[in-house]
């Protein structure tokens, strides 16, 4: 039962983060809202990957690919938005 309890905590955490995103949209953050919601979404993604998808149990090979996806997306988003923002 120990595992299910930790899943429950994670679920509660995810719901709480969801509420924070929605509440955040009411605050007058303007451009900051984009960063706020991206930060919370990344946190939720981390929780899901770490606990639900049991990231730690995999061996070195399976661990490599989430990081690789992160780096690939980061390169894509960074270099393309650099062009559009500095035009």
């Amino acid at each position: 039962m120990q595992g299910v309890k930790s899943d429950l905590f994670v679920f509660a955490g995810l719901l709480m983060l969801l509420i924070m995103t929605v509440v955040g949209s009411y605050w007058p953050l303007g451009e900051g809202l984009l960063i706020w919601s991206l930060a919370i979404s990344s946190l939720k993604a981390y929780l899901i990957i770490r606990f639900y998808m049991n990231f730690r149990a995999g061996d070195r090979a399976t661990k490599l690919f989430p990081y690789l996806a992160g780096v690939g997306l980061f390169i894509l988003l960074l270099l393309v938005s650099t062009d559009f923002l500095t035009r």
Binding site: G72, I75, L79, T82, D83, F84, T86, R87
Partner: peptide, 20 residues
């Protein structure tokens, strides 16, 4: 994965991106 912009040096990409 970092160099694809050299196909777009003259296609109207920003000067800053061209240099990178």
């Amino acid at each position: 994965f970092l160099v694809w912009g050299h196909h777009m040096f003259v296609s109207g990409q920003s000067l800053y991106s061209n240099m990178i």
